[in-house]
């Protein structure tokens, strides 16, 4: 197989990520492992969102819902002493897919402003549901006492083993989404985004394809949720906060919408920027205290002037590879 320049860069990036644990260990900086693991988990969520937002043209403002569902699936089972990871993660995937099917069956019939508001509203509903579940900590959330256990195959308490698991899942999802996008299914999805009237006129009814994409995307994001709750070892409805949905969208745009590497680049850029603005004590106090002010301005500027995202800085194009 001949790889395009962009594919080579993405592979190099993944290799670079794979080299981080030994290097961080050597320099005694485990903090970076934690930060990059978080970046990769959000990159997985952004990959799943990119599928419907980028390739499907569906502006879902509620993708944090599936982060939450995946996290709650793991957290609730763990709450009842069921720590089997296979079971927990299967539930995370199935539950996310079911919720996506329910929300998608209503929202995918609509478009434009309706679609945005409906996905946002349903996610808010799940957020309030999470808050009202006192049994699972209500709005305070609760601790995940034991991380998911995979019959001794991999130990998530081992920071670097967990890191490699996240990396492997990220790489798998990147490959998966790439296959999906270029398959017959993916082309119909993109066609419906590009020109709906034409798509109907040549004989496709877009709805079932959009709904299927919505469900696949939700299930993928559910995996990110299961990873996230293991990462923080804490379950909270804040995973489903509407601002989280906004951040996921921003990652996709910032990285480059409808590109393979965009979600990873966007997640890395946003979270590292946040981390720098928030925590770097070298910067003056007023800067990191009110970092959201600057983030807001940066967001507006990116949308207005840098719409094509970071991936557009890479050589080559997305079309044939």
């Amino acid at each position: 197989m001949a790889f395009s320049p962009r594919t080579w860069i993405l592979l190099a990036l993944l290799l670079l990520l794979a080299a981080v644990p030994p290097v961080a260990d050597y320099f005694g900086q485990p903090f970076y492992l934690d930060l990059l693991r978080r970046v990769m988990i959000f990159a997985i969520a952004a990959v799943s969102l990119n599928l419907i937002l980028g390739y499907g043209g569906m502006v879902s403002f509620g993708h944090a819902a599936y982060l939450g569902i995946g996290a709650y699936a793991v957290g609730i089972l763990a709450h009842y002493g069921i720590n089997n990871g296979w079971l927990q993660w299967s539930l995370a995937i199935v539950a996310s897919a079911l919720v996506a099917a329910a929300i998608g069956s209503i929202s995918a019939r609509t478009s434009g402003i309706y679609f945005i508001m409906i996905t946002l509203a349903f996610t808010q509903m799940l957020y309030y549901l999470g808050i009202s579940l006192e049994e699972y900590g209500g709005d305070d959330g609760m601790q995940l006492k034991v991380r998911s256990q995979f019959s001794g195959l991999i130990d998530l308490n081992d920071a670097s083993a967990f890191y490699y698991l996240v990396l492997a899942i990220l790489a798998a999802f990147l490959y998966l989404s790439r296959r999906l996008v270029n398959s017959r299914f993916g082309l119909v999805l993109q066609a419906a985004r590009s020109n709906e009237a034409r798509t109907r006129a040549i004989g496709f009814s877009p709805y079932p394809y959009r709904l299927a994409a919505f469900i696949i995307s939700g299930a993928m994001c559910g995996v990110a949720g299961a990873l996230l709750v293991n990462h923080t070892a804490y379950l909270t409805p804040e995973f489903m906060n509407w601002t989280r949905s906004g951040e996921l969208m921003f990652m996709v745009i910032l990285g480059g919408i409808a590109t393979t590497s965009g979600p990873l680049l966007g997640a890395a850029a946003l979270l590292l920027l946040e981390d720098v603005l928030q925590g770097w004590s070298v910067l003056p106090k007023w800067l990191h205290e009110h970092w959201q002010l600057y983030l807001g301005v940066i967001l507006v500027l990116v949308v207005l002037f840098a719409r094509r995202g970071l991936a557009s800085l890479l050589p080559g194009n997305e079309h044939h590879d």
């Binding site: 945005i116 969208m249 002010l293 807001g296 301005v297 940066i298 967001l299």
Partner: peptide
Amino acid sequence: DHLDQVLATFGLILFFNELVAI
């Protein structure tokens, strides 16, 4: 398009909330 509008006004929200906090 709507996506741009959502993101830009989302940015405005962050801006206003933080401005008020300041």
